[in-house]
Simulated assay, not measured.
Amino acid sequence: MTRKSATAIGFVAVLLWALLALFTVGASEVPPLQLNAVCFGIGGTIGVVWTTATGRWSELKGITLSVYAFGTVGLFGYHFLYFSALRAAPPAEAGLIAYLWPLLIVLFSGLLPGERLRPLHLLGAALSFGGAALIVAKGASFSGEHGPGYALALACALTWSGYSVISRRLGSISSMVVTVYCLATAVLSTLAHLVLEDTTWPSTGTGWASMIALGFGPVGAAFYVWDIGVKRGNIQLLGTASYAAPLLSTLVLMIAGIATPSATLVVSAILITIGAGLAAYQSRQTG
């Protein structure tokens, strides 16, 4: 697999995450951790079927417990911290801080062997972050009383960026390992749900369809293609391009009639596009 094709596969995750908001709205009756448990259960099942159909179970032999623990902490830790941040701080502010993870991926990638962080990578990531901030943090007003929530959101960003960058160091390990990550995350999410939430199932067909779609796409298959991308693709370009997710998500909500067009969306699109273009140009220049 070439670096270019791996990057393209990784970007599929960004496209799938663009559907996250739409399906989450559809499954809004279901508590977050319960939804997490169901979706990662579906995601893990996808991996079991995929691994069985391709006869690749042998690729999971010899993988240490520490690798499985790392992946589980990455997936479960990110989502648990994100949901906790949204409970402890206003969603706009918490969402903006949590969405530092693509920028952090670009920054942390400079620490990886064989990777070189160039000025245009940084400028592109900063511009794209600005574009995403226009959407994610609309109406945000930071307050000291929500400090703990902001700290959780920052921990969330550090968790996902750290997971993504360290996964690069595990490039020799098959992406089939995500199957175990998902199943373990489903178990931990179930336990957390039973302790912290009341069980509530969708009351409509749309709710059930949305929950299942989340498990097959944004909170399922996305993690397999993301693993391929960060392990074998252009990680700086993937980090910057990830800022397209909130933009695409808003466009999807507009098409569904849930959100309305605005000048902010146009400016955001321009900034994100320029930022991704700069990162792509820098990557081509450095080969």
Rank of each mutant, 00 (worst) to 15 (best):
V67Q: 04
W50H: 11
V38W: 10
G44C: 06
Y68A: 12
G41S: 13
G26S: 07
T54L: 05
G41C: 13
L60K: 11
G43I: 02
G62V: 07
T52P: 06
R56I: 04
G43C: 04
I9H: 01
F40W: 13
W17D: 04
T64W: 03
G71Q: 01
G10R: 02
G62P: 07
T45Q: 01
V14A: 02
P31F: 05
T52E: 10
F40T: 14
V12P: 01
G10T: 07
A8N: 07
T24I: 13
Y68M: 11
A27W: 06
T24G: 13
L65G: 14
S28V: 14
V12F: 04
A53C: 06
G26W: 11
L33Q: 14
V48T: 07
G41D: 09
C39G: 10
F11W: 05
L33E: 13
P31L: 03
L22M: 10
G10N: 04
S66E: 09
N36A: 15
P32N: 05
T64Y: 03
A18Q: 05
F40M: 14
G62L: 03
G41V: 06
G10H: 02
F23E: 02
G62A: 06
V38R: 03
T52Y: 05
V48F: 02
E29P: 08
T52M: 08
I9E: 01
S58W: 05
N36S: 15
C39V: 15
I9K: 00
A18P: 09
W17K: 13
C39N: 12
L20Q: 12
I42P: 12
A69N: 00
T24A: 15
Y68E: 09
V38N: 08
F11K: 03
F70C: 10
L65V: 15
V14N: 02
L22V: 11
A8K: 07
I63Y: 00
